[in-house]
Write a protein that binds this DNA or RNA. Structure first.
Length: 507
RNA sequence: GGCCCCUUCGUCUAUCGGUUAGGACGGCAGAUUUUCAUUCUGUAAAGAGGGGUUCGAUUCCCCUAGGGGCUGCCA
């Protein structure tokens, strides 16, 4: 039985790198018939952001990545919020102290800075709290037992540090990267328990993964260096036999390849980096998301799945269900992948092309309400079907097709002036009059009448057609003019023709 | 700086020693469309460099270069 977890930290909106990690964990769990667990790693009080946990949960739900166990649904290994498990970490840390695998340290942050400075001055490029300095510091290795106990009794803040033995290699068998070897001499005595009583990620994640019987850890590449410490921890606890497998995912990079994609890049490059929009009082600017950009969750999933993975076939469009079927962790790529917004848009348009109106209806109504657009006397479904092939994001619907929902057209003066002349105006007038007799007012019928009149007038198609279109939409581009006219209805169509017939150059 | 990871068209990638190095996005050209979008067709575009191993390297090894990650009482 496989058990995989997604373990985000509620320090703000989760970005798509995190979502992809969640997705791969979800996919592998579902594929192997195992469990997908959500665990909230809220062990840093200073970075805690209210609402972030809720945001994470809502985002996963929006994307369809529903956990089997987690803070909301509970489960056999509850609680799933690390801040509610501090006693467990404390006990485990102390267990390590007792067995000599860890020790208590009283050094203050200031003293640590001094130590680092001292080492730097000595020409040591990587100053760290390790075997070379630990016996010069204030800890349970250098203090007598009585002194240690007295300090603890006096409530002197202390941390618990992992005692790393130098001089041996630590081999990590990463499922994506193969063997990665670290020299324990390069490793510092990592803090396990912080002075505030909370565990560090290293302790909490190892203890919880063990206790929650996690079988496979899939996480970002930024965790690769500290995995050596995690292996040491599994050894220290005597859990090495049941240690989970590790897969370190390539990072999602900025479009220019300069570093990993960060939360600020959305604003910087003009695309969403978060699944959902979110406004928090604690964050100055409101955050846009793939949802508020008008993306389909299925498209976001599909796009993200292909950032660093591919099925080895030429098919690129996959539903979540299909992804579960074809996903294979062995095919995860090693190199970082740049975020490609054009590709994201393409995925989205692929999904948009095949959506039924019934599925988008509610959201369109929502958009209309948000923007105070009245849709009551418009056949939105017909408009949607007409506009659907030209949509890259659902949100564009009311921009592209605005002329169906208002009579105040934004005329493209420059283009209209280029084409308009009195003869064309007269033809428009005539067209308007003729259209009144068409019954039913279908695109086909309109087209027959219009073509006849145009041909008879001798005015070139290339002149009159742009004007007909502009009279209906204000612009010279868009779907079939006769379809537009038909949907607009004869009254509005005639009105707009007549208005254009009397066009007076503005420019 | 140290440690670790990575490196195929502009971008995402296929290739598990022998291929005309394939596909997709984007680009360009053409067809369709009275326009634009869609769709279709075509086209340009890649193995960082240098050593090995091998009959034969994009593929395996080493070096260099470049990029990235980590280097906190953050995750």
């Amino acid at each position: 039985m496989t058990r995989l977890r997604f373990a985000p930290s509620p320090t703000g909106a989760l970005h798509i790198g995190g979502i992809r990690t969640a997705l791969y964990n979800y996919l592998l769990a579902r594929k192997t018939g195992g469990q997908f667990i959500l665990r909230i790693e809220d062990t840093d009080q200073t970075r805690y952001v209210p609402g972030a946990e809720d945001y994470i949960i809502r985002s996963l739900a929006w994307l369809g990545l529903n956990p089997d166990e987690g803070p909301i649904q509970g489960g056999p290994f509850a609680p799933y919020r690390q801040s509610e498990r501090t006693a467990i970490y404390h006990d485990h840390a102390m267990q390590l102290v007792k067995s000599g695998k860890a020790y208590i340290a009283f050094d203050t942050p200031e003293e640590l800075d001094l130590m680092r400075q001292r080492l730097t001055d000595k020409g040591i490029s990587t100053p760290k709290y390790d075997a070379s300095v630990r016996d010069e510091m204030v800890n349970s290795l250098t203090l007598s037992e009585d002194e240690v106990n007295r300090k603890i009794a006096d409530k002197v803040p202390y941390t618990v540090r992992l005692l790393v033995e130098p001089g041996h290699g630590i081999i990590i068998h990463d499922k994506i990267r193969g063997e990665v070897i670290f020299d324990s001499t390069e490793l510092d005595d990592k803090i396990l328990l912080k002075a505030d009583g909370f565990p560090t990620y290293h302790l909490a994640n190892v203890v919880d993964d063990h206790l929650m019987q996690i079988t496979d850890v899939i996480r970002g590449e930024e965790w690769l260096p500290s995995t050596a410490h995690h292996v040491l921890l599994y050894r220290a606890f005597g859990w090495i036999d049941t240690m989970p497998t590790f897969s370190h995912l390539p990072l999602i990079l900025k479009p220019n390849g300069q570093g990993k994609l960060s939360k600020r890049d959305g604003q910087k490059f003009g695309f969403p980096v978060f699944p959902m929009a979110w406004h928090s009082d604690h964050i100055e600017e409101s955050i846009e998301g793939f949802d508020s950009y008008g993306f389909e969750p299925a498209a976001v999933i599909n796009f993200l799945a292909f950032l660093g993975w591919n099925p080895g076939t030429e098919q690129e469009i996959f539903s979540l269900e299909q992804l579960i079927d074809v996903f294979d962790a062995e095919r995860i790529h090693k190199g970082g992948a740049r975020f490609d917004y054009d590709k994201a848009l393409w995925f989205n348009s692929q999904y948009l092309q095949h959506l039924d109106y019934a599925i988008v209806q509610e959201r369109l109504i929502q958009y209309a309400n948000n923007e105070n657009i009245s849709i009551s006397d418009v056949n939105v479904e017909a408009v949607f079907k007409l506009l659907q092939p030209r949509l890259h994001r659902l949100k564009e619907f009311f921009m592209i097709g605005y002329y169906f929902f208002t009579d105040e057209l934004k005329y493209d003066d420059t283009e209209i002036n280029k084409k308009w002349n009195p003869e064309a105006g007269a033809l428009l007038q005539k067209l308007g009059e003729a259209l009144g007799n068409i019954e039913p007012f279908t695109a086909e019928n309109i087209s027959i009448v219009a073509k006849e009149l145009i041909t008879a007038s001798g005015i070139k198609m290339g002149v009159i057609m742009p004007l007909i279109r502009a009279s209906l939409t204000g612009t010279i581009q868009g779907p079939d003019v006769y379809e537009i006219a038909s949907l607009l209805g004869s009254v509005k169509t005639i009105e707009r023709f007549v208005k254009m017939a009397g066009w007076t150059s503005v420019g």
